[in-house]
């Protein structure tokens, strides 16, 4: 296999409040021999909120982000579901709406850029699944996660809306997603089946509607826990923020103790590959992972 290379759209949260995700992503990529070229010029994707205030601006900024991947001639990889939604979503809109593309390019011309629509955007999970291959990955496992019951939590924006998922994430079904389950199995772990795995964590209403957010966070965590999960794993740092840093609030809303450690996708890969827990940032969680 020729070496896999991608442009990495790191996103704000991995560079901010979930530094462990960034650490684990880089460590895993290195171990697997995947080259991630970080787009240092990239700006925030807008997090599905900027569009509420100024939809056009949010498309323009993401078109600029895409231009940098086009310049590198590399497909783009994201490590956050919401980055995926916004960047891949802008890509899809621009590819299918020539009028929008023209007016966006008019703006980009002012800074000497031009969007062509030549790159794909996919979440790291699907880069591993589709390009690296689960069989390949399984071969690299040195510490199978045999003892661990892991609840996969997919996070909305990797699987919905369907048109973006079809275009960029291998058409994963929003009703019967399987990628994370398969990945957990490939790593030797037990993947837990539970109703909430493709539901919403509530993150995007955290500030505006905290009750809603906490209630959803608590529901999903408890559902996983009640189905005997030892850990939850998610490909999305925003889901992670809610599950980890807001877990106490969620427990309050649910009126029950929770205490479920939540891992990032590359962290479980890293553990199975035998990477040292500290290098995966497993000590940087609010809810103790007992692994670091």
């Amino acid at each position: 296999m020729s070496k896999l290379r991608y442009a990495l759209f790191a996103g704000c949260t991995p560079k901010g409040s979930t530094p462990e995700l960034m650490m684990a992503t880089m460590a895993v990529a290195e171990k697997l021999g995947i080259e991630l070229v970080e787009l240092e010029a990239a700006s925030c994707c807008g997090a599905s909120h900027l569009q509420d205030f100024d939809d056009f601006l949010s498309v323009v900024l993401n078109a600029r982000n895409l231009c940098y991947a086009e310049k590198e001639g590399l497909d783009m990889v994201t490590v956050c579901n919401t980055c995926q939604l916004n960047v891949a979503g802008a890509n899809l809109r621009l590819k299918s709406d020539s009028k929008l593309k023209n007016s966006v390019n008019e703006k980009l011309a002012e800074v000497g850029l031009n969007y062509t629509g030549s790159v794909q955007v996919k979440h790291f999970l699907y880069a591993i699944l589709e390009d690296y291959g689960l069989d390949n990955l399984a071969e690299q496992v040195v510490k199978p996660l045999r003892e661990m019951n892991i609840a996969p939590f997919y996070g909305c924006h990797n699987i919905r809306p369907t048109d973006i998922a079809q275009d960029s994430n291998g058409g994963e079904s929003p009703y019967m997603p399987t990628s994370l389950d398969n990945l957990i199995i490939a790593l030797g772990g037990n993947s837990i089946d539970y109703e909430s795995k493709n539901k919403c964590c509530g993150f995007h209403a955290d500030l505006q509607a905290p009750h809603t957010s906490h209630a959803l966070t608590g529901k999903a965590l408890l559902d996983a826990k009640d189905n005997n999960a030892d850990y939850m794993v998610t490909p999305c740092p925003l889901c992670h923020l809610n599950f980890d840093t807001q877990q106490k609030n969620a427990a309050k809303a649910a009126g029950r103790e929770i205490g479920l450690p939540v891992l990032h996708l590359p962290q479980i890969i890293g553990l199975a590959l035998g990477i040292e827990p500290k290098k995966l940032g497993l000590d940087k969680h609010v809810i103790d992972t007992q692994l670091a």
Binding site: T13, S43, F53
Partner: peptide, 22 residues
């Protein structure tokens, strides 16, 4: 209010750093 400022806040943040200061 908190909701509208949150949406607008992204623009300010991006204008300042390109990235979000959480």
């Amino acid at each position: 209010n908190v909701a509208t400022r949150h949406a607008v806040g992204f623009k300010h943040a991006i204008a300042r750093h390109g990235l979000l200061d959480e």
